[in-house]
């Protein structure tokens, strides 16, 4: 059986896994009211549930990494699902950002001193990584049956 993954997949899983898990933890720590000193710079909101979600995405990538390192062929599907989840969250947070912007015009009193960057968060910019991933693996995504459903073919 040929391996359906290579070093690129492994590197990607490691990178995305570590980043998502780390940022997820930062969200949670901030959410518990502990100042990490990184909140302003990295746009990290104190959001325990949102942090949990990023942590889960990180764990999905890292489990894919673990399986690939063990030589389990299907391990790569964790990477694909991880990419899919990170894109879902990116879309959700972009929608919410747009929604908040709209809301700030509707009820300006509730948004005093608010700027749209307050809705900009790691879920959005980390998603760019997956976007690059999906563009890079576009071919394998469409030829590989794993994500036939993504392409709808």
């Amino acid at each position: 059986m040929t391996r359906s993954y290579g070093n690129k997949e492994i590197t990607f899983a490691a990178l995305a896994g570590v980043l998502y898990a780390f940022f997820g933890l930062l969200h949670i720590v901030e959410g518990l009211g502990i100042d990490t000193g990184m909140a302003g710079l990295l746009f990290i909101p104190g959001d325990i549930l949102g942090g949990f979600c990023l942590l889960v995405i990180g764990a999905v990538f890292l489990n894919g990494l673990r399986e690939m390192l063990q030589g389990i062929n299907a391990g790569v599907s964790f990477v694909y699902v991880g990419i899919l989840m990170s894109l879902i969250f990116m879309a959700v947070y972009l929608l919410i950002m747009g929604g908040n912007l709209l809301d700030s015009f509707l009820v300006p009193d509730d948004y005093e001193g608010w700027s749209v960057m307050e809705s900009f968060r790691p879920g959005i910019y980390l998603g760019l990584l997956s976007l690059i991933g999906i563009l890079y693996w576009k071919d394998s995504f469409s030829s590989n049956e794993v994500l036939v459903f993504l392409e709808g073919a």
């Binding site: 999905v60 299907a74 590989n144 049956e145 794993v146 994500l147 036939v148």
Partner: peptide, 8 residues
């Protein structure tokens, strides 16, 4: 493909 996604 479905089986692989289900594994996850």
């Amino acid at each position: 493909g479905s089986d692989m996604v289900d594994r996850v």
